[in-house]
Design a binder for these strands. Structure first.
Length: 774
RNA sequence: GCUCGGGUGGUGGAAUGGUAUACACACAGGACUUAAAAUCCUGCGCCGCAAGGCUUGCGAGUUCGAGUCUCGCCCCGAGCACCA
């Protein structure tokens, strides 16, 4: 009996699959396209993380299943290699990011090859390839032309370790998404994308896409739509003249509480703005404003929720009842949300209550009115506010796509002419972040010294690079047109393949990548560059993989290196084990001991293929039923990504085969091989082609069909209860009538002894269950 | 604080309101072996000699019947966090 040599078998099929183009769909002419996409990796660290492997295998299994169901599956792969993540790693090991990219690329592609996924290798892409980022820059220009990319000075997130600004989405609980350092605020002029323009659309679109519910909820909360009213309060004094001509406008979701207003609170930023236009206040108030503003910059945003504040010295008039209320300046009022001012209603808002208690402001007992009346009485205006802020896209780092803009003293900001793209990232020796709020590219005169595209005068090229999340916000479009020199994506191909049919990735990208991608897709549609506004029809988040009950981390030294496991056990074992750990959407606990179960299973499958008599005919009706049931179960489970239960169904099938070896023949082996092909593509192929002597790859042969007449047993176990307590299990022919089951049950001695008093009621469920109430 | 997931044997985990603990790991006993590993067979929720009883974080409820539905708690994980 030939022993199974996973190394030989796996590398043999890798070569053949490539040569036979098993996983290369005809992108132009495919009849039945299915775009199966997985989030591409950051190729930065020591190699591919087993967590990536887990996600990729889970995605690949779905793709292989769809391919066998007759779809032309497109399953591309690439590297999200630009960005802080890769650059930080290069810095850490003392290599130049541009050199390191080539090393990481080779290693990653080797590992991705080893795992045996059905990737369309001809379409691979890397975001740091000038042929790719040329189009990233082109996209930036399209947004700029439509007024969706703009510069603005504001208090932005700054990571003191990565030495760059960050988008709001990249600050996780007050810390830098990449390095975990506490983020501070800095007042800087930066490039933004106007994602807020699409806030409502981003929210509404969620209703029509089939995505993991938790991701939709996270996006909904992040967008944070609030409906309410803006109400103007007349001020008694702002500029020193007691003219009453000035107003403060507040936003509230509770106009019904208008009569309970006991104070107005404005943000320090708004107060500063008033100062700048001539507001006269005491020195004490000025000091408070200065301090509050500087605290905003340095304060740890995660702690210290203690509210501070000061009475400004002026009052405002409640338009609903003409009552005078004091105007306070407080740090609990955010500058970037609503109008930067709130009406204080301590009776109905916890924060207002806390503030009122601290500063002894009186709580009003005024009654509520209806929302409509509140708005009417206060002459307010119905408005909607979003929590979402514009996407800050510029970064003061080296390893990214240069922002394709040029600044001319005379003509202002000018986009780089499209014919001049790409703006190549130069190879500069000193690529370290500077910390001066400027990119290291600002030290490269050859790079930034350019002519103005408009007046040809002396101008300066933008030296910031764009956020990595811009690279990854459109990569799925490029995959299908990766060879196109003329356009970012080919119209005909795009029409055929998009939107993506199935996207699989991590839920940690809920309000990062997954939000940005949707935004840009909507922009592309509006620019008539595509014909769809939601990029992914279906998205499923996979769970987190842990090791022996703990999170994997380098510091704990419990990070799994997939290479070792592939070497020792083979890719098929690793794939199948990863899927068997637990529900794919919930993750699982990787324990070395558990691998044995899968190793044994695949060994037994191999032994079966070596020892059975291929000429055997299956004349065993029970085995036929098990076989058909398994086909049904695995088919349904693969559709739902319930991988752990399909593996267990395959195990049950193997157990049955082994117990009925005389009935297991060519057909049975072929069905087993096909059902396990998505999980263990190498061994399945070996069995299908070398033992069963098929010419074509198993991965492009039709998925087994089940006979719906054969998924039901001929005889079923019926649970018999007396007063809802189980007393017996009886075997009955399938579809037995109530009267027959009743009779059989009553004749059962376990039952008859409980039926001493007359039966009051019988509850019967066909083929399952009968309950006598006495 | 708010919003999502979860809580089932020694462990990972199965269960359209209808036999809770499938499948696997670990463990124990046996076979094979000079021996070990591998492999194969048997057992394996708890109490009990048994008959039987108990068991899905805790407490109520709906139902003939609840791991599953409803309400109130407790614990764990993830996300958001002064968004007015």
């Amino acid at each position: 009996m030939a022993k199974y040599n996973h190394k030989k078998v796996e590398s043999k099929w890798h070569k053949k699959w490539l040569a036979e183009k098993v996983y290369e769909p005809d992108l132009k002419n495919a009849k039945n396209p299915f775009y199966n996409l997985m989030m591409f990796p950051y190729p930065s660290a020591e190699g591919l993380h087993v967590g990536n492997m887990y996600a990729f295998v889970g995605s690949d299994i779905h793709g292989r299943f769809k391919r066998m169901q007759g779809f032309n599956v497109f399953e591309p792969i690439g590297l999200d290699g630009f960005g802080i993540h890769s650059e930080n790693y290069a810095l850490k090991i003392g290599e130049h990011p541009m050199d390191q990219a080539r090393v990481s690329e080779k290693n990653f592609y080797r590992q991705l090859q080893m795992i045996g996924n059905g990737f369309a290798w001809n379409e691979k892409l890397e975001t740091y390839d000038p042929e790719y980022y040329k189009w990233t820059q082109w996209i930036f220009i399209q947004l700029y032309k439509k007024g969706l990319a703009y510069r603005k000075k504001s208090a932005v997130n700054w990571c003191p370790s990565c030495l760059t600004v960050l988008a709001d989405e990249q600050v996780i609980s007050g810390e830098c998404e990449r390095c975990g350092t506490k983020v501070i605020k800095k007042e800087l002029e930066q490039w933004f994308f106007r994602i807020t323009k699409y806030a409502d659309k981003l929210l509404k679109g969620l209703d029509k896409i089939d995505w993991s519910e938790k991701v939709k909820i996270a996006q909904k909360n992040w967008i944070g739509k609030s409906e309410g009213a803006s109400i103007k309060f007349r001020l008694t004094d702002v500029t020193g003249q007691k003219d009453g001509k000035h107003f403060v406008e507040v936003f509230t979701t509770r106009p019904d509480t208008i009569f309970g207003v006991t104070f107005i609170a404005i943000s320090p930023e708004k107060a500063k703005f008033w100062l700048d236009i001539g507001w006269q206040v005491s020195e004490e108030v000025k000091e408070y404003i200065t301090k509050a503003l500087s605290d905003r910059v340095t304060r740890d945003q995660n702690q210290d929720k203690d509210k501070s504040g000061i009475f400004s010295g002026i009052s405002a008039i409640n338009p609903a009842n003409n009552e005078k209320v004091p105007v306070w300046i407080s740090d609990y009022v955010l500058a970037g949300y609503g109008t930067g001012a709130v009406m204080g209603v301590p009776a109905h808002d916890e924060r207002d209550l806390e503030f009122a208690n601290k500063f002894k402001l009186a709580i009003s007992g005024a009654p509520l009115v209806s929302i409509e009346e509140g708005i009417k009485k206060s002459v307010g205006k119905k408005t909607t506010q979003f929590r979402l802020r514009d996407w800050l896209v510029s970064r003061q780092r080296y390893w990214g796509a240069p922002i394709p803009m040029i600044h001319c003293e005379k003509c202002g900001w000018q986009p780089v002419p499209e014919k001049d793209l790409p703006v190549r990232l130069p190879y500069i020796k000193n690529f370290r972040p500077t910390g001066t709020s400027e990119s290291p590219l600002a030290a490269d005169e050859k790079f930034f010294k350019v002519k103005c595209p408009k007046c040809e005068g002396v101008a300066r090229r933008e030296t910031d690079v764009s956020d990595t999340f811009l690279d990854s916000a459109w990569y799925y479009l490029r995959y299908a047109s990766v060879k196109d020199k003329k356009y970012a994506w080919d119209q005909a191909v795009t029409k055929k393949w998009f939107p993506v049919d199935m996207y699989i990735g991590g839920a940690e990208h809920s309000v990062l990548h997954l939000l940005y991608v949707r935004f840009l897709a909507m922009v592309f549609k509006d620019l008539r560059l595509t014909n769809f506004d939601e990029p992914f029809k279906k998205f499923r988040a996979h769970g987190l993989l842990i090791k022996d009950g703990a999170k994997m981390s380098k510091s704990k030294g419990n990070v799994i290196n997939p290479d070792e496991y592939i070497k020792n056990y083979g890719a098929d074992v690793l794939r199948m084990y990863l899927m068997f750990l637990g529900p794919f959407d919930q993750g699982g606990d990787f324990r070395d001991g558990g691998i044995k179960g899968i190793t044994r299973f695949l060994d037994r499958v191999w032994n079966l293929s070596q020892t059975l008599n291929l000429k055997s005919q299956n004349d065993n009706p029970k085995l036929q039923i098990v076989l058909n049931k398994t086909i049904k179960k695995v088919t349904e489970d693969l559709e739902n990504l319930s991988y752990n239960t399909s593996v267990s169904a395959l195990m049950v099938l193997l157990n049955e085969f082994e117990a009925n070896m005389e009935s297991v023949g060519k057909n049975e082996l072929e069905v087993l091989a096909k059902l396990m092909a998505p999980f263990a593509p190498h061994m399945s192929e070996e069995i299908f082609r070398e033992i069963l002597k098929n010419k074509k790859s198993i991965h492009i042969t039709p998925w087994p069909k089940f006979d719906s007449k054969l998924v039901k047993d001929k005889e079923v176990d019926i649970v018999v209860q007396v007063n809802a307590k189980m007393r017996a299990v009886i075997k009955m022919p399938v579809d037995s009538l109530q009267k027959d089951v009743e009779e059989a049950a009553k004749n059962n001695e376990n039952i008859s002894k409980y039926l001493t008093s007359p039966v009051k009621k019988v509850i019967f469920v066909k083929d399952k269950f009968i309950n006598f109430i006495v």
